[in-house]
Design a protein around this nucleic acid. Structure first.
Lengths: 216, 216
DNA sequence: ATAATTTTTTAGATAAGACTAAATATTTTT
DNA sequence: AAAAATATTTAGTCTTATCTAAAAAATTAT
């Protein structure tokens, strides 16, 4: 059984491994969890004893199979709760994160599997992220950043890279949502900003924005 | 904002006040929470500083209006989640308590009010206990213990006094559920056991059982 | 009303998890 | 390859919530 804190470490390391591969540094974990590197060292030692990750002084950490399984379960719970909040309780996609962050720590295998049934085994959460099934498997969808799309080409928004309320509200304001067609009209080479066509309206978005939108 | 531990103290004191009135003893709180009296003293001081209860050394404690409001909210959350688990996720009434005990601590006013809407503003939880509304009001239902019913009289089961899985499973096994008609055929004066008619079947139940069933 | 018992509080200790500051490794720069 | 900069770990402290053991107050019994 893992504490709330341990679960949050596992989840963060899992997400960091998805981006950077094995060998996650103490500092990057500290940044992600908004804590201090010294706290991370302490916790890492504890988690290594529980055999959910491998740790060698001054080298990064890597999840074991056991650790990855545990982390996947937490991610599954988080994303299923997000679907519940949006589909059943009228939450918008920018309101779900903080609540799901709490709900993901509820311990009850029956709860989460019945929730999955109740929701109709959804494959995606409201931000386009895949939901692992009971066994921890999920489909990896093809996607690329909007910022990599060439001029005059069109893509369909399939996900976001940042689930903060601020960013999602910005997207809402500009009518950018999942399934939305986006055409790149022009690219400014100086700052990487894009002028795009969305809902037959032209808008210009910064590189930072286009770096957080996934298309297909 | 209250910690998980503080919330559990508030809830226990609230339930104890409902039975014994104001002035709850350190020891009774300790028993209810399965902790030590010394721990209770510590926590009581803390809660008194937060003005959710009144505490005077060597005298019991009483909730303030603020404290009662906070406790009512926790009870509301607990009971709404129980309804959700039974109505939507196929839990039986003996499986909900432990999970609801976790869910009641999730912090999000929107979550609980939307859940209330989603469930259709239920007035009762699966054990027949009333659910406080958004303002903290709930209807107090008339009820008495089955053990107080006279011989040859009939009542309808409207609640239970113990929500432990063991007790509820016993009731299931004997076809005793909410709304069920129960007729007392005879009362054994020696040990208080009752022979009752339920579902046109005669069964004998101990005093301890009849002391945990509410009828109307 | 005094003794015995029970209840409650105090004092001091412990564990989890976080922090600061200092020490030690490692990496990067020059 | 030494110096500078960065990253990581260690050592010691703090907070929250708990515990045990002992002291103090209140209650009950004689």
């Amino acid at each position: 059984m893992f504490s709330l804190s341990e679960e949050n470490y596992l989840k963060s390391i899992y997400h960091l491994e998805a981006i950077h591969g094995k060998g996650i540094s103490t500092n990057s974990i500290a940044k992600k969890l908004e804590t201090k590197a010294s706290s991370v060292t302490d916790m890492i030692k504890k988690l290594a004893e529980k055999e959910v990750l491998v740790y060698k002084k001054y080298q990064g950490v890597s999840l074991t199979t056991l650790g990855r399984k545990e982390a996947t379960t937490i991610v599954r719970k988080h994303r299923l709760w997000e679907v519940f909040l949006v589909d059943k309780l009228n939450f918008s996609w920018d309101e779900v994160h903080d609540v799901a962050e709490q709900l993901e720590h509820i311990k009850s295998p029956k709860l989460i599997d019945e929730l999955d049934v109740f929701l109709g085994f959804p494959k995606m959460d409201p931000h386009g992220d895949p939901i692992p099934d009971k066994e921890g498997n999920f489909q990896k969808i093809e996607k690329r950043l909007l910022s990599t799309l060439e001029e005059h080409k069109t893509g369909i928004c399939v996900g976001v890279n940042d689930s903060s309320s601020d960013f999602l509200k910005y997207l809402d304001k500009n009518n950018i949502s999942l399934g939305q067609k986006i055409k790149v009209l022009s690219k400014e080479s100086f700052d990487g900003s894009l002028t795009i066509l969305i809902h037959s309206k032209e808008i210009t978005i910064s590189k930072k924005i286009s770096n957080n939108i996934y298309i297909q």
